[in-house]
Design a protein around this nucleic acid. Structure first.
Lengths: 215, 215
DNA sequence: TAGATTGTTAATCGATTAACAATC
DNA sequence: TAGATTGTTAATCGATTAACAATC
């Protein structure tokens, strides 16, 4: 892998999971080698861009041959740090929170879900994916004791800001944010992925409305 | 509004829902006017970019004054076409599908959810958000009769491709895609928003791993 | 060796930022 | 009028694409 010198463009980083996914598929199909041309056909990206992207991290291919699928898959996994076991808590066990807790395979993506919290007393003790829902009042103690580094936020917008600030104080370093509140760069040294489902839906509405225009 | 001439850059479109959200907040706070400078402070985007973005659609501001919040909110709503009532069906009533059906306020984003489908016989008849789950075998007839234009896909990856092709044949024009399968540009004249939750999670893993690097 | 495909540099394209005249 | 802030053009920056020599 290249010396971790100049930082990688965000655009490139966003494409890495996609490459990883395609390679996984090919691996499942029992294929052994691929090329930027083949990946281009699969993804719609240009072969040039794919080679450019991969070369940010090192020369994983071989002239005249292409890329070994298993090796490249493994390398991208390492780049994404998917072998990590980042301790993760989820706050807000409503519809969405429970679905995320139950649906996501955290373990395969570098995370371990170790706690679920909700403000609703009635939910306390219920199991989601084998993990008990705890009352939010126990959050601080839990964090001091278990030192999670990632929080998944599935709470209503109103509570998001205060909760975020509190969690940072408790040592949380990264947020997977499903709330309507933007966790922006007001907090330095924190990693954030905002998942704004309603923004996505509104964008779809726009695209649909303009479908006729293009061409 | 400007003549719908040259098409708008995708980057600009993605920012519109954000502006809409900020304006909604300000409206709720009872504020009347704002400026690109104020929106800049709120969003972290530059004032210049905000003015540039809004001007793709028309001159909604006034020199020396700024923007009227209610008016701008309304204009962006029209641009996004949120007043539409696009008939929508959701396929796959597992954890995630149910949460999406129950959690999203489709009506406020230009959609009406008119049907939910699942292959599991046992789920048939259950209500999610007041809408009964139907067996997938009735999908074709339902579409012919009710003519939905949007499909929300929450099925396993394996079934995504075939289902997508079938739905296009049935007249679906837009997809909100939660599956692992990329609905790409292999289908022209279709609007797509891919929501790849696991890609987002992997990206977070990467960012967390590199937190120390940046200064 | 001949054919293929990478790694990498240079050219192009698009998006963001800066600057400022117009004007409320 | 003086002050503020837009709309818009020009300059900068970053990302994508094209091209090709290196080499397996």
């Amino acid at each position: 892998m290249k010396s971790s010198g100049q930082s990688i463009s965000p655009q490139v980083v966003k494409r890495l999971p996609r490459y990883y996914r395609y390679l996984e598929d090919m691996l499942a199909e029992g294929l052994v080698r691929t090329s930027s041309k083949e990946l281009s056909a699969k993804s719609g990206l240009t072969a040039s861009q794919i080679r450019q992207d991969l070369n940010c991290f090192g020369g994983f291919g071989q002239q005249g041959y292409g890329y070994n699928i298993a090796q490249l898959h493994n390398e991208i996994g390492k780049i994404l740090a998917l072998d990590k076991k980042n301790k993760t808590i989820l706050i807000g066990a409503g519809n969405l929170g429970r679905a995320v807790a139950a649906h996501m395979d955290f373990a395969k993506k570098g995370f371990v879900l170790i706690g679920i919290f909700d403000k609703n007393e009635a939910a306390s003790g219920q199991l989601v994916n084998g993990i008990p829902i705890r009352h939010i009042s126990g959050l601080d103690d839990f964090c001091l004791e278990n030192k999670p580094v990632i929080a998944v936020l599935c709470v209503p917008k109103e509570r998001a800001r205060e909760l975020t600030e509190n969690l940072i104080r408790l040592g949380i370093k990264g947020f997977w944010n499903f709330t309507h509140f933007d966790i922006g760069n007001q907090f330095p040294q924190i990693a954030v992925e905002n998942v704004h489902l309603s923004d996505s839906l509104m964008t779809l509405c726009y695209k649909l409305d303009r479908l006729g225009d293009k061409k």
